[in-house]
């Protein structure tokens, strides 16, 4: 069990009559950053809470590092740090006191100050939390998840309320942690941010896993386009088609790129035929586009 740190198998969960998780199975490789994405109410937080042993579930198994997790079996939680939904903060304690309170005895003061430093919270860490802004509370919540240097970190919407600088800092911290072998399971709506971080993607919709793949696979599966703007688009299309270039069916004038496509050849071909090129752009379909397509074609039916 050394390479899989988290394993979820056939997880089912009901809230009353409504089934919120249907046969959810996925696993998380040690040292990977995994993105858990899906529309609002798809069950992201529910999965995370189940993984943290906060929920009873109807059936299925969850193991962390080989140890089973349920509300009555919490031993594996020693290796886990988490931030779920919104950070839980006592208004009468300072940020530092929160870290002191929730960190393990084995976590030194230096370790606490290290995370404070990395999250750039020094200026207000000794102030009472009731004076904190939303972003400050969020940072404290993230710091609480990371302070014990857990093997598995679960972050639910960690970018909520963070300013662009804090966002960038968080990204650096997450990538550093992953390099050191920490595994992270992150959910976020901000797909452009998530895209910069994750190795693997788990997509959930209406309580079911609809897609699990590595980012590399996702990228290779998506179309890459060469978007052109020329003095005579109609003629250019004709010439390119005659030369076996595949044209995209979209609104824009674009060639679907493959391994053989060379921009220089395209430019040469068109200019030899007396067509001026005004602009050329490479366009990759990003995570957002891929994901929206995926959810649109999604075969999951509402029950």
């Amino acid at each position: 069990m050394s390479d899989t740190i988290l394993n979820v198998e056939h997880l089912n969960k009901n809230f009353g009559k409504k089934q919120v998780l249907k046969d959810v199975s996925f696993s998380v490789q040690t040292g990977h950053i995994v993105g858990l994405v899906g529309p609002n109410g798809a069950g992201k937080s529910t999965i995370m809470k189940a993984v943290l042993g906060l929920f009873n579930y109807a059936s299925g198994t969850i193991t962390i590092d080989g140890e089973p997790v349920s509300p009555t079996s919490h031993k594996a939680m020693d290796k886990v740090g988490a931030l779920i939904e919104y950070p839980g903060i006592y208004p009468f304690l300072t940020g530092y006191q929160h870290l002191e309170l929730f960190s393990k005895d084995s976590t030194s003061k230096d370790q606490i100050m290290d995370i404070v430093d990395k999250m750039k919270m020094d200026s207000y860490i000794n102030r009472k939390a009731k004076t904190y802004s939303l972003g400050m509370k969020q940072k404290l919540g993230i710091a609480l998840a990371l302070v014990d240097r857990p093997k598995l970190v679960i972050l639910d919407e960690p970018m909520n309320g963070l300013d662009p600088q804090a966002n960038k800092d968080l990204r650096t911290i997450i990538l550093d942690l992953a390099k050191q072998g920490t595994t992270l399971l992150i959910s976020s709506h901000i797909l452009s941010e998530l895209e910069k971080l994750i190795d693997d993607l788990v997509v959930i919709d209406k309580g079911q896993i609809v897609y699990t793949k590595s980012m590399a696979e996702l990228e290779s599966g998506s179309k890459k386009l060469l978007v052109l703007k020329t003095s005579d688009d109609a003629k250019a299309k004709e010439i390119l088609a005659q030369n076996n270039y595949q044209l995209d069916n979209g609104d824009k004038f674009a060639i679907v790129e493959n391994d053989q496509t060379k921009m220089a050849d395209v430019i040469k071909l068109l200019s030899d035929n007396g067509i001026d090129i005004d602009d050329v752009q490479h366009v990759h379909s990003d995570l957002e586009t891929s994901l929206l397509n995926l959810l649109k074609n999604d075969k999951v039916k509402e029950s």
Binding site: L54, H74, M77, A82, E85, I89, Y90, L144
Partner: peptide, 12 residues
Amino acid sequence: YGTIKELLYRKY
């Protein structure tokens, strides 16, 4: 305060 989650997801 929403701290119940932090209390409960630990090893205890």
